[in-house]
Nucleic acid binder design. Sequence first.
DNA 1: TCCTAAATAATAATAATTCCTATCTAGTAT
DNA 2: ATACTAGATAGGAATTATTATTATTTAGGA
Lengths: 139, 139
Amino acid sequence: MKIAEEKLRQRHLKITPQRLEVLRTVLQMTDHPSADQIYRMVKIRHPTVSVATVYKTLETLVEVGELKVALVTQGRARYDPRVDRHHHFLCSQCGYVEDLEIKLDCLETCFPQALQDRLTIQRSEVIFHGLCPKCDGKH
Amino acid sequence: MKIAEEKLRQRHLKITPQRLEVLRTVLQMTDHPSADQIYRMVKIRHPTVSVATVYKTLETLVEVGELKVALVTQGRARYDPRVDRHHHFLCSQCGYVEDLEIKLDCLETCFPQALQDRLTIQRSEVIFHGLCPKCDGKH
DNA sequence: TCCTAAATAATAATAATTCCTATCTAGTAT
DNA sequence: ATACTAGATAGGAATTATTATTATTTAGGA
């Protein structure tokens, strides 16, 4: 928490009760909460908070590097006519997607036996996030 | 296309112009289109088609194995207080997420140099999709 | 050709997120 | 301590993505 405050200060961002409360909440929740879940938790202690503030705050906390967005892809499902096993590159700016012809057989073997007893794996997918030539300055 | 028709027939699903048009469209589009992009394309040839039909049809085509949903995670962003490099398990039924302590250093080295010239990688993430103990029968 | 279950169109409803704007406040300057 | 101001917030409207509802239509078997 103290580190987070320092990060905000360094970027001349204000240390507001809302920001601290949102961060505290996410740190407490273990199951990778969605914005909505976070909003509902924050509202218990801070009933006047607005959804917009929670979204904005989460964005800010991701920017300063205190949180990460996990498991998301810009809001909408994308369909792929290739049903064989392959992986993807996703441009974090414009959403451009490219199939990657990378063999990653290690994935299956890397998945620990101990976990396989609890978790049944149906498939695995690797997403490389980055910038496509257009969005990257170097064209 | 013929194979897809066969798959539909096997499951006693009707071969409708809408289904064929949606599939043809996705096969033509190279950039992993979203449902909305597909809808707009389909509407050019088939102006009376409805969004709902496109969504339903995409679902059907995924079920019969003609399409895959790429890059998606049940609609909403999930936030993670762990900002270090790690991976995730995602239950495809209930959305339960678990951090995985798997070392996958191969990912970086697997990414071909040739592609690195075009694509700037910011991060990579592996998502293992499957069933959590609760959703899996074996409790 | 007829029949029926399945599929579609049209529209409403829901969910997730972003935008807008008047008001408020953290932190700096006084 | 006080005043000032850029930045932050609340509240609500707007937007986007997706799903549900239902009356009508149709593919494919009898």
